[in-house]
Each structure stands twice: as C-alpha cells, then as structure tokens.
Write a protein that binds this DNA or RNA. Structure first.
Ligand code: ZN
Ligand code: ZN
Ligand code: ZN
Ligand code: ZN
Lengths: 330, 330
DNA sequence: AAATAAGGTCACCAGGTCAG
DNA sequence: CTGACCTGGTGACCTTATTT
C-alpha cells in the first residue's frame, strides 16, 4: 500500500503494533517495550522531531513518537486484513493528500474526522488523546516517565481493548485508550477495520462493529441474502469503485454526512485475538470480546481481491470514493 | 566485500558515516567531527594526497578527504544491509574488473550506466557536486573552513544529495580524488540500494528506481505471481546468480532490456527509499511524512534521503533458496 | 492457501576503550 | 592521537502464528 512509517516517515513495511511503520521502528518498539530501562532521557527536553535520519538519535523521543502514533503491544493483531481496511487506508490517504494541498503537514492531532468514520484501533488507546491521554503526559521526557507509561500500558490496554465500545470513555481509566476519542490520527488505523458507517454505504450494509452491538455476523449474512440487490456489493466492488474514482478524479471529495457519530465509534478492536491474550497472559483478560471476530461473515468471498486491488490502488490515486453500494460482505 | 577505504585506500572495515572506510578513518572522522578545533591547518596549502601511509600526517586534508568521499554524521546508517546492496556491490565489482581489463580506471563520467544504473548515495550529496556543492568550496584548506563545512554539512547535503546523475563531470577539482568523476565511486555505495534495472532480472522484476516512474511493488508482486517462472527470483536468488557468474566469469552481464528508461535514471539516490514509494512525488521533496507531531516543527528536517530503498525489496517475496548465502558479510 | 504481522536472528554500525 | 577491539544497539530478512 505504500504507506509511510508514522514514526519516522520512511516507507512502511506494514502495520505493526497498531500503526504503519518501517522495520526499524517496529523492532525498536518491540525491543523498547520490553526494556524501557535502556532508554535514556532526551537531551533535548523531549522535543526531538523524529525522522528517518535522526530516528536513532534519541530513543526517548522515538518511543514517545511510537506511542503518539498509537503503537501498543496490546493493539497488535495477526492475519490478513479485510478489504475494508485497505479501502480505509486509501481513503485516508486521499484525504491527506487533499489536505496536504491546503496546508502543510498535518500536525499532530487532526481534528475529527478524516474519513467518515474513523475507527480507532485499540492500540490506539494511547494515542487517541495525544495530550489528553493519561499516558501522554507521562511520555514526556524522563526515563521514569517512559517507564511508567510503558508499563502500564500493557496491562490496561489489553483488557479493555476489545470490548465494549464504550468501554471507557471516561478517561479516567487508566491511561489506556482513549483512543476512541480522537477521531483519527492521521495515519492511524485500527488493526482491524470496520467499514465506515453511513456514508457511502447503504444503510445497514456495512458490517457493524465487532463486538458491540451488532447483530452478529450471521445476521449480516442473512440480511444480505435477503436482499439480493445488495448482495452484489462487496468490498471488492467498493474497492474497485474507489479506484475508479481515483482515475477520474473528481473534484471534491465528498464529505458525506457523517453518519456515524463519533460516539459510537469506539470502535474497537477488531482484531481477533489480542496479543495479550495469546501470549502470556493468558487470559487475562477478559475480554468478552473474544468473540468478536470480525465479521466472520463475509469472509469468504471477499478476500481475494486483495492483491489485485492493492496493486491497482497503488497506482492510482484516489480521488474520491465512489458512491457505491456496498453490500458486500464484509 | 572487500572494499577499500575511500579515504586512505586500505581495506575497508565497513561502511561508516556514509562511505566505506577503514577503522582508522572511521574513528578519525568520528573524533574530528566533534572536535574540529583540534585540527590544525594544512601546511601544504591543502593539497595533501591522502593515502594509507600518510593519512595521519595532515588532519585537515584527511578530514577534507573524508568529506569529499561523502562522509557525514547524518549519513550513517545502522543495521544490516539489504541484499540489493550486496548485489549492487558485486555487480559494480564485476564491471570494474571488466573495465579494468580494457582501460584504466574509469574516468569520470561514465556515461550513464555502468551498471545499469549507478546510484549515488546521499551521503554523496557532498560529493556529487564536488565543487558545485555549497560545502565544497568550504572544504578547502583552512581550519575555519573545515569547521564550517563540517557543521553545515548535515543540513545541506541531505537535500541535494540525491539527485542528478550527471552532476558534474567537470573535474577541476583539486587534488582530491577525483572520485567524483568516477561514475560510480568505486567504493561508494548508497546506504541503501536499489536494484539495478534491467540486468539479470526478469523484466519487471527488479524494483525500479526510486522515484521514477515505476509501477509499484505490487505490480511486481503480481507480475511474479502471474509468471511463475519469475517467481523464483528474489534477491537472494539474484545474488546467488551474481556470485555464480563471478566464479565462472561470464562474459558479460547480459543487458537485458533495460526496462527503465534512462531518463529516470538519474540514478540516484538510492538512498533508502525510493521516491516512488514515498510518494510518488517525483521530486523528492515531499515529505509526506505525515505525521509530524509534536512540535511542530521546527526543526525539521527533512533531509531525507537517506537511506532506504531497501524496503521495496522486501515486498518481494523471497523464495528462498538458497544456495548461497548471501548473508555472509559483505 | 494466502496474506500479513509478531518475533527471532544476526549482519552491521556508532561509540567507547585503551594499549601503543 | 591513533586504531584494533569490544559493546550496545539497529534493522533486513526469515520463521512462526494468526486471520481471512
Ligand atoms: Zn520508522
Ligand atoms: Zn529527544
Ligand atoms: Zn582509511
Ligand atoms: Zn594537508
């Protein structure tokens, strides 16, 4: 997909620990997470701007940046990604480009939404409220702070992660995620991805969020079946449409009426199992979520397209999403 | 890989601060960089020719040479080198050998390509335009000049670095080496490296040059898939092939249909990332980086270029193979 | 089966050491 | 000062696990 590392800007190798990152930042985060003590304080008052060239110069700031962009051990996920995720990435990219035109680089927090409905990823927990976030302030300059933050993060984040959307809106919760609040960080994407709500999609179409409220996969599936017309839509179609639109760039992007209210968004994890679970900590977690699998439903058909579409995607730039329908499975 | 120190000519210990150098020159540069005041002016009007035996005789000239060959604190890179880099080194070596037979060293400008396409490395920034380079003139003889240049270098070099191939052919330069003339610097290599176009690779296979025109990785991937035969190729395999050929020196390397047009060639950068990936932006510039969080900025940096490219490679799937190992150290 | 991320491995480098 | 040697990382590549 040609994403860039959200931490240092070099081409991303993939989505790691909750954010698109390069191999280096991925490894760095993985190592640092388990060894915060190795990180010395920033000599620059915690204000280093991380880029490709200087990323190794200040570990404290590099780690801070990782957390800022939403990286989290608990937010990780394995496996193939649905086309929705890819679509989202494309759309986001488009928006950024457009915005870029308007302004400079986007600074940290982007206002609310870029894409119709941003979803956050659990990992984001940390991220979402960059500064508001409880952990955030920890992530300042001292080593101690980094440690604290790093440590807690794990625990907390994990549990809540998945589950309830609303899990906590309150920030009080620990540090974890508040991700939800922030609409999106520019490059952040949820480990798993939900289709945007409302927007372009026909009502009811997009799969619901994972664990939350929704009906469940089966329902989705059924619904689709019942409505033949809808069936035709699938991610692939949507994706293609997006691509198409890119080719023939249209003027504006529409900002569709954001259907989904931010609120709900909590969006959640979609990941199937969180790392926390897998590993060590057995279970700890709660997680009701367990279940959440992403829509299991659609699985099948959809996937295939990945590759192709991806490639296409790359080449084309997107302009605006086409209004298509979506039915597909998710 | 048996490279020689670009500063003094003795066998290089590795790629340090942007150039292949011996331990001594590496340490010298590292020390001097942080202590320019310790360097006294050249007694020989700044014209000392540095070699293994006299390298310690004139610090000013040794440092100058370091800068001339592209050394820079910002040009350093960590980690393992991509196999493409190794491949490039091998090919370069082969060519040199071949040419050696024909003539002497290659003089400066070799037309466009020796290897399919030489790339420069960013570090070279300094180098590329030896005299044209802003810093270059600083590097003359006085201590003061050295200091200035050393300091600024960082900033400037980055940007220009990459660029144009043809940079300058002129040689007026001083005594120094003429390295610049040489199309490829014998030993210089970009920190990262892009695979040569054309050459041995199946069409379409090798990643294209950075920013230029190319299609994108995905394409590559797809292509491979579609063409089973091609799939087999991967860096490792390629590398093996190169090595093999060396053993049994084959006449020429075949020059397969150069896919890439010279145009782009500018070869360059190689630095790490290719532009293409980054954004397409042909120009470097860009900065896509999105996220700049924090601070906004100030500092900045953009320097881009450094290193990268290796990433594309990755995307390709490796089959693995392996016969030889390329892993050995370079 | 394919995609794709976490982790592991270890080639490689900036820095620090210290005998010369 | 110099530069061979060591140390602590870094990150490219590979393996394993998970999800689609
Ligand atoms: Zn990075
Ligand atoms: Zn810092
Ligand atoms: Zn040397
Ligand atoms: Zn001199």
């Amino acid at each position: 997909m040609n994403q860039t590392c959200k931490v240092c800007g070099e081409p991303a190798a993939g989505f790691h620990f909750g954010a698109f990152t390069c191999e280096g930042c991925k490894s760095f985060f993985g190592r640092s997470y388990n060894n915060l003590s190795s990180i010395s304080e920033c000599k620059n008052n915690g204000e280093c701007v991380i880029n490709k060239k200087n990323r190794t110069a200040c570990k404290a700031c590099r780690l801070r940046k990782c957390l800022m962009v939403g990286m989290s051990k608990s937010g990780s996920r394995y496996g193939r990604r649905s086309n929705w995720f890819k679509i989202h990435c494309l759309l986001q990219e488009q928006q950024q480009q457009q915005q870029a035109g308007g302004g400079g680089i986007q600074t940290g927090l982007k206002p609310p939404q870029k894409t119709p409905s941003p979803h956050q990823h659990l990992g984001l927990g940390l991220l979402n409220q960059p500064f508001g976030h409880p952990l955030m302030h920890h992530i300042t300059k001292t080593k101690e702070e980094l440690m604290l933050l790093g440590l807690d993060e794990y625990k907390n984040s994990a549990s809540p992660s998945v589950s309830s959307p609303e899990s906590h809106n309150s920030d009080s919760s620990v540090e974890i995620s508040d991700a939800r609040r922030i609409p999106l960080f520019p490059g952040l994407l949820p480990p798993t991805f939900l289709p945007p709500h409302g927007l372009l999609f026909p009502p009811g179409y997009p799969p619901l969020y994972p664990g939350l409220l929704q009906p469940t996969n089966n329902n989705n599936r059924l619904m689709r079946n019942h409505n033949p017309g809808v069936e035709a839509f699938n991610k692939r179609v949507f994706l293609d449409a997006v691509l198409q639109s890119q080719r023939s760039p249209t003027p504006e992007v529409e900002a569709p009426p954001p259907v989904a209210s931010p609120l709900q968004e909590d969006p959640i994890d979609l990941s199937m199992k969180t790392m926390s679970e897998r590993g060590s900590s057995p279970a700890h977690s709660d997680r009701s979520d367990s279940v959440v699998t992403e829509q299991g439903a659609g699985s099948e058909a959809d996937e295939e397209s990945d590759c192709e579409s991806e490639k296409e995607l790359k080449r084309i730039k997107l302009v605006r999403p086409a209004p298509l329908d979506l039915t597909t499975k998710v």
